[in-house]
């Protein structure tokens, strides 16, 4: 469990970091929290020529900013900071709830939101919540900065739209609905999720919902939005029949893997049942309170 030989680069600024990534011509990897990357290096699943350690870039990448309706989270913001941030509690309560399901104390002390999104684990909680909340990914390289809508970001299992020379510098979240829920089922505590569900939306005074988004994790190569299910719920009050229809429609977004944790059949079995419960709970519930 030792990584292959590699170079270690510790830039003092984002500009130096993207220079280093460019210099290595796509063969370097960014080291943020390292909670997924370092085990993969040890198992030799990856053999980068160099690691570009961005942990000194807290001044540029470690901030949580509420700017008007938008909330901007730097790539190096650690889970433990998200857990306790009053800005996140007020503006992105779903994100704060989800963070508590990630890893354990030691992992949350190191792991970063940027690292999790760049890792693009299809069962990962952070990719799922960023997708559900419609975040935009900000990436920088020597050629400049670009913003990628999260719906276009995830391209496959552990694959995404980042170029190898690009550094994920932050995530920009739009105003989030107050009503949201997160559900996760794994074989055991802190294990990879078999199924995870994140739902957000806003009911009006008559109980008609708008801005409904349903994110699903663990049922496809990437986290996915259950668009047909959300469309069924949009603009309506949620009675039992509507919720049941939406829960079945969510299967359209699922193409789950058969793996050591569960069969595809079992995941397909779980999805409508659990989504129905989550929606029923949300329909009858108060706005999120943490």
């Amino acid at each position: 469990m030792k990584p292959a030989p590699l170079q270690y680069v510790r830039p003092a600024s984002v500009a130096e970091a993207v220079d280093a990534l460019e210099e290595h011509g796509g063969m370097a990897r960014v080291l943020a929290g390292g909670q997924s990357l370092v085990p993969m290096l040890g198992m030799r699943l990856m053999r980068p020529s160099a690691l570009v350690d961005i942990n000194d870039l807290g001044a540029e990448l470690g901030k949580i900013d509420g700017r008007g309706e938008e909330t901007v989270i730097g790539a190096l913001v650690r889970y433990s900071a998200l857990e306790t941030s009053p800005v996140i509690a007020e503006r992105l309560p779903l994100l704060q709830e989800v963070v508590r399901h990630i890893g354990d104390r030691q992992v949350r002390n190191r792991g970063t939101i940027g690292g999790a999104v760049a890792q693009s684990d299809p069962t990962g909680e952070m990719p799922l919540v960023c997708l559900t909340l419609g975040a935009r990914v900000v990436a920088r390289s020597v050629r400049g900065e670009r913003t990628i809508p999260i719906e276009e970001f995830f391209e496959g299992s552990y694959a995404n739209a980042l170029e190898p020379e690009e550094l994920l510098v932050g995530l920009r979240f739009p105003l989030a609905p107050v009503h949201c829920r997160f559900f996760e089922r794994g074989r055991k505590h802190n294990d990879f999720a078999l199924l995870s569900i994140a739902v957000a939306g806003s009911p009006d005074a008559d109980g008609r919902w708008s801005g409904v988004r349903i994110g699903l994790g663990g049922v496809n190569d990437t986290p996915v939005l259950a668009e047909a299910a959300a469309a069924r719920l949009e603009g309506r009050t949620w009675d039992t029949a509507t919720i049941a229809e939406a829960a079945e429609l969510a299967l359209e977004a699922a193409d789950p893997p058969d793996d050591v944790r569960a069969s595809a059949e079992y995941r397909n079995h779980l999805l409508p049942i659990q989504l129905r419960r989550v929606l029923t709970d949300l329909a009858g519930a108060e706005p999120w309170k943490t």
Partner: peptide, 10 residues
Amino acid sequence: VKSCLLLAPQ
């Protein structure tokens, strides 16, 4: 923190 997930240079 888990020290097996930190590199010594860090």
